[in-house]
Amino acid sequence: MSETMADAGADTQPLIKVENLRKLFPVSKSIFREAHDFVHAVDGIDFEIAPGESLGLVGESGCGKSTTGRMLTKLTDATSGQILLADEGELIDIASIQRSHMRRFRRRVQMIFQDPFESLNPRRTVYDTVAESLTVQRIGSVQQREERVAELLHRVGLTPPEQFLFRYPHELSGGQRQRVAIARALVIDPTFVVADEPTSMLDVSIRISIMDLMLKLAEEFNVSYLYITHDLAVARYMCDRIAVMYLGKIVEIAPTEELLSNPQHPYTRALLSAVPVPDPAHKRERIDIKGGISKALNPPPVCRFIERCPRATDHCRTSDHPEFTDLGDGHFVACYNL
């Protein structure tokens, strides 16, 4: 079914369309008191993901990238805004989804987690873990589920599957666990997978094989990824486009190579200049920004980056957080001083 949708026009109809998505976490709330202070974890973001495309969401810790991923998988409810998911020609709004549509949504959207040691239930076998969504949603007979799980294990490279089906997580290495997690996400044939730093806990030598596997499977299963990472080099390897987040806002979004070669937002530039390069001969141009990340607690309505920005002007201090400027070729940047 996803094939037909991709044919229907990858350029015209996005798979995921996020509009003005916000998540505010109340601070010091109790049943007796209304909260007055909010952490603006995600503060009005917009983006689209085409069928089969991978979007990288890059930013430092606390920028709201993981919260975005959790809203897209409905682990966290959005405070406001829309998340539209294209499914069989219809657009479902994830943010305000009906209970009756929940099952259908869970078949379309899956997630791969960061820590393979914590994302598998230690008391359940590989089979139980991978078959979970089939079992819960009562898809197929026991025999069919077994076969589907075996097929998935084969496809994620846990071969021969019979050797892995009934192992417990503690009997697997980190890389093998992450393969199980990938199999679990894909077993139900989703169209969209949120991958939250799936390789950051793995050893360097395992990392590439997992990333390659994810790229291969993206093609085979025709899934789109929202790839959340703090590592721009990894995002470059995995993603077609990259969105850079800072304090709950997307400050720049562009096709991968365009973003790396032609960064426009001062934060993107600083971030890029700070990434260590595995080449001792490489001399990079440093762009210093002041201080550390500001707090997302009740931020003023001006540009979120203003305190650290080397090119902030009076205009920035008196205006709202800038809207996206379209630089062409899908390159958008939220800054007044380009």
Partner: peptide
């Protein structure tokens, strides 16, 4: 050699990285 080839970078040409098979 394999460690260097399997490290992604933001500089240089975007290339397919050589995976290091197996586990330590």
């Amino acid at each position: 050699y394999l460690l260097l080839s399997s490290t992604p970078s933001i500089t240089g040409p975007r290339r397919k990285l050589a995976p290091l098979e197996g586990e330590p």
